[in-house]
Design a protein around this nucleic acid. Structure first.
Length: 286
DNA sequence: CTCCAGGGCAGCG
DNA sequence: CGCTGCCATGGA
């Protein structure tokens, strides 16, 4: 069985960059630059189009607009964000190799669990744990195609309540965080529907009140799961970048409503090794 | 062996 | 408030 392409859509995106940008851990490479993208009960096949700025998909343009435009943040003008970074030579260098990264709007519950797993962890291990989680507790949402294994849904909260069932997934000490979050959603103590309606500051405060969720993970959930593009997660990589390039602090005010997007460009560019940081000049001891 | 990875918690001062 | 040790796990 192979992928049946149905339509070509205008969308500025580099699929390979986005797939390896550390925001989504379940995209599946399908060969020839194509990817299978699971979200909820649906799965989209997507590939570069006949010209830059377009993508091929295995749904009609109408179905894409209905089910996927929001996921891909299709309404945002990324070129305009890039232009607003013109005076910043470091950011321009990052955009040159990472400007094709789009910040996806993924499922909030999935992002909450995924980025709780991400703490003090690395990207390959996060991907492995999420994959095992879906295989064990999810159900198939897309069949295998020419070598690519089947894709499974992200587990519902009910499946993750019992911490004893979370062994063997490589979660380490994080397993009890997941179980507590899942139980909270099941009992109603955690209200994800209310969370989705909150403005950024309120959502961030709500999230940091949850056991196992700190400032950084809360920002990742806001940015990748709640559509708050002004969230600016600071992890070990961004810390290094701020330390080397922005000693006076990052100028968040220059990127109103989209700081998280330039953050993703910097993260991907440096984490992938394509942009190097300045050597730390030894502060002269007085 | 040590250090590190998209950190957070608990226990201090 | 800020600081420190600890937390599982696996790869370099």
């Amino acid at each position: 069985m192979r992928i049946e392409w149905k339509d070509e859509i205008p969308l500025q995106i580099d699929l390979e960059q986005t797939a390896s940008s550390g925001q989504c851990f379940r995209w599946q490479a399908a060969g020839g630059g194509a990817y299978r993208v699971p979200n909820g009960e649906k799965c989209l096949a997507i590939a570069p189009g006949s010209v830059p700025g377009r993508v091929r998909v295995d749904v009609t343009a109408e179905e894409f607009a209905r089910d996927w435009a929001d996921y891909f943040d299709a309404g945002r003008d990324y070129a305009a964000i890039c232009r607003s970074a013109q005076e910043d030579s470091f950011l321009c260098a990052c955009a040159a190799v990472a400007g094709g990264v789009r910040v996806l709007r993924q499922d909030a519950w999935e992002m909450l669990i995924t980025f709780t797993i991400s703490q003090n962890n690395n990207i390959p291990r996060i991907r492995a744990s999420v994959d095992k989680l879906c295989r064990r507790f999810g159900h198939p949402v897309a069949k295998g195609v020419r070598g690519c294994p089947a894709l499974y849904s992200f587990p519902a909260p009910e499946a993750l309540r019992d911490v004893k069932k979370l062994k063997g997934l490589g979660l380490g000490y994080r397993d009890r965080y997941l179980a507590a979050l899942a139980d909270g959603v099941c009992t109603g103590a955690i209200d994800l529907d209310a969370l989705k309606k909150m403005p950024y500051a309120q959502a961030h405060a709500y999230l940091t009140g949850l056991f196992g969720v700190g400032v950084k993970v809360a920002n990742c959930v806001c940015l990748f799961g709640l559509g708050h593009a002004d969230a600016f997660p600071v992890d070990t990589w961004i810390k290094k970048i701020l330390d080397a390039e922005y000693r006076e602090g990052f100028p968040l005010e220059k990127y109103p409503g989209c700081a998280g997007i330039v953050q993703q460009w910097m993260f991907y560019a440096v984490q992938s090794g394509q942009v190097e940081l300045k050597k730390e000049e030894k502060t002269p001891r007085i």
